[in-house]
């Protein structure tokens, strides 16, 4: 049982590491700021979630599991907010998306309501 949990947890952690790798590749290869932020936030959320889930399975039911869950909650609060702030800053600095501006963004820039 413990061995099965170890392998399941290890598999999840490896899947998380794969997502982190994909995210890193995306940051390097994607064409503009917004798509790169999208790739990076996969690392923060998906990759970290899978890794923490895997570590929870490895550690079994203990105080470590609770701490890992708290770390996960913290990451879930901070990473999306950071990605949002980054995209916000890029937009404020005048970066247009690679695929062209959306209508709603143009409205927003003119000072209209969202």
């Amino acid at each position: 049982m413990a061995d099965a949990l170890f392998w399941a947890g290890g598999g999840l952690a490896a899947a998380g590491a794969l997502l982190a790798l994909i995210g890193a590749l995306g940051v390097l290869r994607f064409p503009d700021v917004y798509t790169r932020i999208h790739a990076a936030s996969i690392t923060d959320t998906g990759g970290a979630t899978l890794m923490i889930l895997g570590l929870c399975l490895i550690s079994g039911l203990s105080l470590v599991t609770l701490k890992l869950v708290l770390v996960w909650v913290f990451i879930m609060l901070t990473s999306p907010a950071a990605a949002n702030a980054l995209a916000n800053a890029a937009y404020s600095a005048g970066h247009t998306p690679w695929i062209g501006s959306f209508r709603i963004m143009q409205d927003n820039r003119k000072g209209g309501s969202r």
Binding site: P80, N84, A85, N88, S92, G111
Partner: peptide, 8 residues
């Protein structure tokens, strides 16, 4: 309307 930092 110019407030972009609600999430933050």
């Amino acid at each position: 309307p110019a407030d972009h930092h609600v999430v933050l």
